[in-house]
Design a binder for these strands. Structure first.
Length: 354
DNA sequence: AATCCGGGGCA
DNA sequence: TGCCCAGGATT
């Protein structure tokens, strides 16, 4: 189909060799390092993931050391990076590779795909970068570059689009150096063929890019709109005991922040007053083994914590207690627990200097 | 096929 | 504000 495919991949690789960023996971084929970086960079910018990559390599230099770490420690190190199932799957896969595979990562696309947290993109990335296999990656950058260069308007988040772009990516990959090619097209998308206002006038492809020729660069790629975000109302009960302790609970159900810690949470369907809060069954349960001395609202205006798919309108209630409550932890030890950024921000603000 | 799952950067 | 980011799992 694409008649200038060789030129496309060659120019891409040439651009890459002259313009690539030097990153810690470049220039190595160590599958542990590549795997770790690829998991971290899922839906995550290089600038955001980089410090986490360095922390993980420093704390866990080998897959065996990661495997032997407690899950809580892995989650704590992952704290702030989001999409925490990645951290749980990372740890599970480390244990699997360490025990069942004696520390040796799978060496084919098909076998890599069996690992928890490794999908089409990540299996292709590891296979091509570590083992020189001609497996084309398709990430957000690849969608953008291919849709523009070839002028394809199939929505990238439709199943038809995913198939079409995967097939095209596999067609144009440079099979002689697939790892370099895959990184080249992603780097090109991340650094030059950017979503907004790309510098097409200076682009190496401005003589062959279909979108540029037809003045449709700003319209590609096409993406179906997702539905509106859900609003949720969170009331966090921050217990302060006389001996400077508080209560944290681990989230164990389905949903966001699985296995992270937070203050006791009372979720409501709307913003509530203190008297309304006190009437709720969840509040009764919360306070049943306590002798509450006082409750005061820390923030009248809810803190809006925005996730990609829901907005959390959050208010913190400060609860002082006379009677000893069970399972309290010293406030000075909150930092040992993996908590959502929403909680971390409150803790650092509220307990600052105390 | 659609939805869920974080957090941050940018125009 | 809305969109995007070296996506994957679940329903």
């Amino acid at each position: 189909m694409p008649k200038n495919t060789p030129s496309f991949s060659k120019k891409l690789i040439s651009w890459y060799l002259h313009n690539k960023r030097e990153l810690p996971w470049r220039g190595t084929k160590n599958p542990y390092h590549i795997w770790l970086s690829e998991i971290m960079l899922q839906q995550t910018r290089v600038a955001q993931g980089l410090p986490y990559y360095l922390k993980f390599i420093e704390n866990y230099p080998t897959v065996q050391q990661l495997a032997h770490a407690p899950e809580d420690a892995v989650l704590k190190l992952w704290q702030g990076l989001g999409y925490y199932s990645r951290a749980r799957n990372l740890h599970a896969t480390a244990k699997m590779v360490s025990k069942d595979l004696k520390g040796v990562f799978p060496k084919t696309y098909k076998d890599l795909l069996q690992l928890k947290g490794v999908g089409d993109y990540t299996a292709s990335a590891i296979a091509s970068i570590c083992y020189n296999l001609p497996e084309a990656v398709v990430d957000g950058n690849v969608y953008r570059v291919l849709s523009r260069y070839f002028g394809i308007s199939t929505p990238i988040n439709s199943s038809a689009g995913q198939k079409e772009f995967k097939k095209l990516a596999q067609l144009v990959i440079d099979t002689n150096e697939p790892g370099t090619y895959n990184q080249a097209i992603m780097e090109f998308g991340a650094r030059f063929c950017v979503p907004q206002n790309p510098n097409c006038g200076n682009c190496i492809f401005n003589d062959s890019c279909e979108a540029y020729k037809s003045n449709k660069v700003s319209e590609l790629p096409v993406k179906l709109k997702s539905k509106a975000v859900r609003k949720r109302f969170f009331n966090y009960m921050v217990i302060i005991s006389e001996d400077e302790k508080t209560l944290l609970q681990q989230r164990l159900g389905k949903g966001i922040w699985h296995k992270l810690y937070e203050f006791p949470l009372i979720e409501t369907s709307e913003e509530v007053t203190l008297s309304e809060l006190k009437k709720l069954p969840q509040f009764q349960k919360f306070s049943e083994n306590m002798e509450i001395e006082s409750i005061s609202l820390y923030n009248e205006t809810p803190i809006v914590h925005k996730l990609s798919h829901q907005h959390l309108l959050t208010r913190f209630w400060i609860v002082t207690s006379k009677k000893e409550v069970k399972n309290l932890i010293p406030i000075s030890e909150i930092f040992k627990y993996a908590v959502p950024v929403l909680i971390e921000n409150f803790v650092s603000e509220f307990f600052e200097g105390s």
